[in-house]
Design a protein around this nucleic acid. Structure first.
Lengths: 249, 249
DNA sequence: ACACCGGGTGTACGTTGTACACGGTTCTAG
DNA sequence: CTAGAACCGTGTACAACGTACACCCGGTGT
């Protein structure tokens, strides 16, 4: 139990040592991870099967287990590898920095929507993800905030991006699964629209009739600007009330 | 294909008609949904099996399929039933209203963290969820905003709550799976902490050493206040730039 | 020369969602 | 009042999943 998890730590944080004995490996951990990412990108997280990954590599299913302890650990490795594709937030003014960080995350989630669908129960943090986090903290660290406030500010941005990202990820997956674009799909749901009557959903029908759903704003751009505005208000305030957690769930 | 989805619509939006023939049903759709919610609450989304639900009800697995077309539709019904437990946002000033809406969502996700783990590819929206949304829009509708701005404002709040919610949901699931509390678990990861060195992760170690991770602020409370502040800035601005989506993904 | 370590394979098991056929029950049509 | 249709619950069966285990064989150290 404990050693299982410590093995995961080594897997992520320590470069795999080359074995001195035995035959040359035709496969490697990074090739497995790479192939898995490619499968998830192209066919979605539900198609990410050990069998499918092995197939794209031209090996048998069980050969993967020589390079990766199991599927859960493979997911850990995939996540950290994708974080590795993002750029570190450069030092500079806090607002530009946090915006950069948010855009990096957003680009990452758009390229790999499955990142947001891994149920991620206690996923082990990897070095790539951690250094990106560290750079984000650094950019907020010169404002004279308490360290717990630094964390809170950076985390607020992350939470927002994760929220928009999930909605986006669901849509992408749905489009792949059904092969129908978002718009076409909803247009095909007359049976649903029949129930959108003014007495049941007054605002929805009003927004619909005035075309508000056709001219939608960009959720990410709009929300990000608002979040940063809100953080600016906080940062520029003189005496900030500290909001401590009341319940420890 | 098409009729499948229309059946889902009927399932959610039209009350199930009592059959006139055949034996009295010992089971019912609502009992199945109720039992499924109870299983997911108590044992997590990964334990939500058709077999497990049937077992708690004291029936065979296949009997469920008389009341629910399949697992995917059961999930639709569960989601909408949970939305039904929340209160409608009452009319009133926008900020109080959006805060109320956010707190309702937050309470919902805390009570049923699995809501955030359903991969939710194109989940059919149900009436309960939609009326809650409608009430949230209503509270923002008297500020003279364009209808697309009303949507954007309410959606920004939702996205944030979803973001914090996911982090919380992952933690809850992990605690159930391992039976170890969040704090204990991380404390047991010495193998991980060894890699948190000042040269690799300067900010992290600094925050750690100054106790910033022990005095963490409440992510939900802190972030919500910032988001609402940011929206206030937007709402009180005279001429607002409209941010249109550039890319349609 | 030989033991051994490690890479790749093949088979097999338990668990999942659910298709399908069946037998019993109750209302409706004639 | 009876035949038949509609419907409920059950049991068996199947494909796909992650992966434990036993196996063979190639290359390196002693």
């Amino acid at each position: 139990m404990k050693s299982d998890r410590d093995r995961s730590v080594r897997l992520l944080w320590e470069p795999p040592a080359e074995p001195t004995r035995g035959p040359k490996a035709a496969l490697s951990q990074s090739r497995v991870v790479e192939a898995a990412i490619k499968v998830a990108d192209a066919e979605g997280v539900e198609a990410l099967t050990m069998r499918r990954v092995a197939e794209t590599l031209g090996f048998t299913t069980m050969s993967l287990y020589r390079h990766v302890p199991g599927k859960s650990e493979l997911l850990d490795l995939m996540v950290d590898a994708v974080w590795g594709e993002t750029e570190h937030t450069p030092r500079g003014p806090w607002r530009a920095g946090l915006e950069f960080f948010a855009r990096q995350m957003w680009a990452m989630y758009r390229a790999h929507p499955w990142m947001l669908q891994l149920t991620a129960s206690r996923r082990m943090p990897g070095p790539q993800a951690m250094t990106r986090q560290d750079a984000a903290y650094a950019v907020v660290s010169e404002l004279g905030l308490a360290t717990e406030e630094i964390v809170a500010v950076a985390t607020a941005v992350s939470h927002f991006v994760v929220g928009v990202g999930r909605t986006m990820a669901d849509r992408v997956q749905a489009e792949r699964e059904t092969g129908v674009s978002e718009e076409d799909w909803w247009n095909g749901r007359e049976a649903l629209w029949e129930h959108f009557t003014p007495d049941r959903l007054p605002m929805m029908t009003h927004i619909w009739n005035s075309g508000g759903f056709e001219r939608m704003l960009d959720d990410f751009e709009f929300g990000l600007a608002r979040v940063l505005d809100g953080l600016a208000v906080f940062i520029e305030t003189e005496d900030r009330p500290l909001v401590r957690p009341q319940t420890c769930l």
